[in-house]
Amino acid sequence: MEQGTVKWFNAEKGSGFIERENGDDVFVHFSAIQGDGFKSLDEGQAVTFDVEEGQRGPQAANVQKA
C-alpha cells in the first residue's frame, strides 16, 4: 500500500485526487473509499491506498483513512 495526502475531493461529484509520497497525483473515486457511511475525503487528510490502472490512467483503490 502507498501513503498519501488528499489534494482535493469534491463530495458532490464523488471524486478528487490524492498526492502520492512518491510519484504523480492519483485520481480517487468515492467507490474506492473503504468504510461505512458517507464516503468522502477531506483536503489534507492522510490516507493509505493501492494503485490500479483505470480507464484514464492510474487511480486509487482500497482507500483507507490513515
Rank of each mutant, 00 (worst) to 15 (best):
K7E: 00
E53F: 14
A61F: 12
G35L: 08
N62S: 05
H29N: 03
P58K: 10
V51I: 15
V6E: 00
L41I: 05
L41C: 05
A60F: 02
F30Q: 03
P58I: 09
A32Q: 07
Q59S: 07
V6M: 04
Q34E: 09
D25C: 15
Q64F: 10
A66M: 14
R56F: 15
G37C: 09
G37M: 07
D42H: 15
F49V: 00
G57P: 07
M1L: 13
V51W: 08
N10V: 04
F38V: 08
F9W: 15
F27R: 03
Q55S: 13
A60L: 01
F49N: 00
G4N: 01
A61V: 14
I33D: 03
W8K: 05
E43C: 15
R56T: 08
Q55C: 15
Q34D: 07
A60Y: 02
V6T: 03
F9L: 01
A46D: 08
I33N: 02
E2S: 10
G35E: 09
R20T: 07
G16E: 02
K13T: 12
M1C: 12
Q45I: 08
V26D: 01
F49H: 01
W8G: 04
S40H: 09
G54F: 07
A66H: 11
I33A: 04
L41A: 01
E12D: 10
Q55N: 11
E21Y: 10
T48S: 09
E52T: 12
K65H: 09
F9R: 01
G16T: 02
Q34A: 11
S40Q: 08
G14D: 02
D25M: 15
G14A: 03
G57Y: 07
V6L: 05
T5I: 14
E52L: 13
D24V: 13
K65V: 13
A66W: 11
K13D: 06
F30P: 00
G35C: 11
I33K: 00
K7M: 03
R56Q: 10
V6A: 02
I33F: 06
V63W: 01
K65N: 08
F38T: 06
L41G: 04
F49K: 00
D42C: 15
Q59G: 03
T48H: 08
Q34T: 11
K65G: 08
N62M: 06
F9K: 02
N10F: 03
F17Y: 08
F17H: 01
N62H: 08
V51Y: 06
K13A: 09
K39V: 07
A32E: 03
A32L: 01
V28W: 05
Q64D: 05
N62Q: 05
G16I: 03
I18K: 05
R20P: 03
K39H: 05
V6F: 02
H29F: 09
Q45R: 05
E12F: 13
S40A: 08
T48N: 08
R56D: 08
D50R: 14
E12T: 13
E52K: 11
G16D: 00
F30L: 04
V47T: 03
K13Q: 09
A61N: 08
E12H: 13
F9G: 01
Q55D: 12
G16N: 01
F27W: 09
E21W: 11
S15W: 15
F9S: 01
Q55I: 14
V47W: 04
Q3L: 12
T48E: 06
A66L: 15
G35K: 03
V51H: 01
G37N: 06
G54K: 07
P58G: 05
A61C: 11
G54P: 02
E53H: 12
N22G: 10
N22K: 10
T48C: 12
N10G: 05
T48Q: 09
D25Y: 14
Q34K: 11
G4S: 01
G35Y: 08
E53V: 13
E52D: 07
A66T: 12
L41P: 01
A66K: 13
E21G: 09
Q55G: 11
G54Q: 07
Q59A: 07
Q3T: 13
P58R: 10
R56I: 07
K39L: 10
